[in-house]
């Protein structure tokens, strides 16, 4: 190929690619745009979760929520603690509320598992430290959301989160997400990025409640809604029950509340 031919080819190629974009834009506008984060229902300002620990009657009840979450979000299970990724899990009382335990805590409370997740803090340290805004606060509904395509994997957010809510993809999650373990409705992540509970942002966009809450339907164990709305169910639950939040002294204003009730 001589110089003239090369230039012709190069010119033609760029013309086609430019024209191609215009054509696609004309036929299907917006098809080539980057996907927008789904919006929550209009008017919602600050989403929160309330967990009534006393309503979890068995290990299986927790498992139901955890498995529902991990299944639909393609959270891989490598079966070893070093590579572990988790969005929703359980801890004991002393690990959930460190500093509040004492030797005479009721046995049933001491042994009761508590469901843990990202607290979607009002003032999230993870968002503050992220150098790329890959983790960001959605001002309109209060979710702490993530852009997995922007995350550089520096793990500053993992050091910053006081709740241990964040996991890192130490290896390719797709290795273990095959066939029936893969949910094609939700994107898998790549190795080298951080991830965490997203309050089921993809379900909220379809007017569904988070999967973990749905799994407890009818038990009254989990509530989800707009804490900014005085008439919401979560506000009603908070009005009528004594609730705790994790590490309230840190000023993060977590949006996950716990009812210990009659455990």
């Amino acid at each position: 190929m001589d110089r003239r031919q090369f230039l012709k080819m190069a010119g033609l190629t760029s013309l086609i690619s430019l024209g191609g974009f215009t054509t696609v834009e004309l036929i299907r506008p917006g098809l080539l745009d980057a996907s927008e984060p789904p919006a929550a229902a209009p008017g919602v300002k600050r989403l929160a979760m309330v967990i009534d620990v006393s309503k979890f009657r068995s290990e299986a009840a927790y498992k139901k929520s955890i498995e529902a979450c991990h299944k639909i979000h393609n959270v891989p299970d490598f079966r070893n603690p070093k590579d572990e990724i988790k969005w929703l899990w359980t801890e004991k009382y002393e690990n959930t509320f460190p500093g509040t335990e004492h030797p005479f805590v009721k046995d049933s409370v001491k042994e009761k598992p508590f469901l843990l997740m990202c607290n979607h803090c009002q003032y999230p340290p993870c968002v503050r430290v992220c150098p790329t805004k890959a983790t960001y606060k959605r001002e309109f509904d209060g979710l702490v959301a993530m852009d997995y395509h922007r995350c550089i994997g520096c793990r500053f957010c993992m050091a910053a989160c006081p709740y241990g809510a964040r996991s890192f993809n130490w290896r390719d999650p797709r290795e273990v997400l095959k066939d029936e373990r893969l949910d094609r409705e939700f994107p898998t992540r790549t190795k080298g990025v951080v991830e965490k509970c997203n309050f089921c942002v993809e379900r909220l966009a379809k007017d569904l409640i988070p999967a973990c809450v749905e799994a407890q339907e009818g038990t009254g164990a989990m509530f989800f809604g707009d804490i900014d709305d005085p008439g919401s169910e979560v506000r009603e639950v908070l009005r009528t029950n004594y609730t705790l939040r994790r590490k309230p002294g840190l000023g993060t204003q977590p949006n996950a509340y716990y009812i210990i009730g009659g455990v």
């Binding site: 503050r128 430290v129 992220c130 150098p131 790329t132 805004k133 890959a134 922007r150 995350c151 550089i152 994997g153 520096c154 793990r155 500053f156 890192f168 993809n169 790549t190 190795k191 080298g192 990025v193 951080v194």
Partner: peptide
Amino acid sequence: VDLGQPMRLLNVILHPTPGSVLF
């Protein structure tokens, strides 16, 4: 060498975040 996605290193400059100490 510590980054999970070193190819995206320039995101620190492309999306400058003065609130982050790493920036």
